[in-house]
Computed example of a mutant assay.
Amino acid sequence: MRVKLAIGAILLSALTIPAYADPDWSATSKALGRSGAQAAGGVYRVGLPRSDLKVTLDGVQLKPALALGSWLAFKPMGDRDVMVMGDLVLTQPEVNPVMTKLIENGFEVTALHNHLLRSEPATMYMHILGHGDAVKLATTLHAALQESGTPLSDTPPTTPSAAIDLDTALIDQTLAHKGKVNGGVYQISIPRAETIKDDGMDVPDAMGSAIAINFQPTGNGKAAITGDFVLIASEVNPVLRALRESGIDVTAVHNHMLDDEPRLFFMHFWANDDVKKLARGLRSALDKINLQHG
């Protein structure tokens, strides 16, 4: 009887443990100055495209969705605690003012580097990590981003267009992954097979752990491509060789996180060439990577 009572008490206790509610994303968006959307893995993701910048590379004016898309991803960790990760696109004069605001308020800067070569003006990419209350984190991020020209107000919603001057069926078939049109750019996200963790916590695709490949049409069957391959150490040079053999520039190899598992390296690339040729080159690189299928 005592055993039954004890078991009953344990079950009752488990049933009365309060479930943690999601943070107030509306209040978070208000503090940040920009709204986001729910993504897979319980992530609330906010896009912050640098539409204020006019960046050209090899004569191509880059659309924000191609290579100028700052983003922040908030993930609830329980008991009202949130982890936020992000990638901030900054001009060189903006880097240290933004960094100072962040580190003064408890944020970590996990990487600072280029993604592109020869772009005018040059852009830098600051990867960040923060923990705490979602609204407080958003307030700090707002103050930091005000040190840059990053647009922080919501723009009127527009109807997304699926039309783009690219043979997307060819791209999908060649890469064996389907993309979507965003801001005049065809974007493909490809997860790795492993579960990615940082400091022991899961890092879903929406927090930057998936391979990103972007195509911007440049006319006459050509496209500019950029993005990043997410690689373990043994994959770095096989992928690098596959890209170079296909005439695709490798523009950076570096980390984005500090305590990731497995240890990851991010390889950025650039080319402006025939779409079919580029898709084949990208596929040859993808064949060297442990990808999630199905």
Rank of each mutant, 00 (worst) to 15 (best):
T226G: 09
M201R: 13
A212I: 05
F215M: 07
V230I: 08
E245T: 09
E194N: 14
E235G: 11
V203M: 02
S209W: 00
N237K: 15
G221H: 06
V236W: 11
V250F: 10
D202H: 03
P238A: 05
M207E: 07
S246K: 15
V239D: 07
R241T: 14
D198V: 02
A206K: 03
F215W: 12
V250P: 09
F215T: 09
G227T: 11
A242L: 06
P204Y: 02
A242Q: 12
A212N: 08
S234K: 15
N237Y: 11
P238I: 05
T226E: 08
K222T: 14
I225P: 02
L231Q: 10
D205E: 12
G219Y: 05
G227H: 12
A242Y: 05
G247W: 09
D199I: 01
I225C: 10
I213E: 02
S209V: 02
G208K: 04
N237M: 15
F215A: 07
G227I: 07
D198S: 11
G227N: 12
L240F: 12
M207A: 05
G200T: 01
A206R: 04
P217A: 12
V239Q: 09
A206N: 02
A193T: 02
S246Y: 11
T226M: 15
G208S: 04
L231W: 07
D205N: 14
T226L: 13
S246I: 04
G247C: 06
G247A: 08
V203G: 00
D205W: 00
D249P: 00
A206L: 02
M207V: 01
T195E: 05
T251E: 06
T195R: 07
D205I: 01
F229L: 09
G247H: 13
I248Q: 10
D199M: 01
D249F: 06
G208A: 06
D249Y: 12
A212C: 00
K197E: 06
V239E: 04
T251Q: 08
V230N: 11
T226K: 14
A212Y: 03
I225H: 08
P217M: 10
E245C: 03
I225R: 11
P204R: 08
A206M: 02
R244Y: 04
D205Q: 13
A212L: 12
R241S: 14
P204W: 01
V236S: 11
D198I: 00
E235S: 13
E235M: 13
S209M: 03
R241V: 14
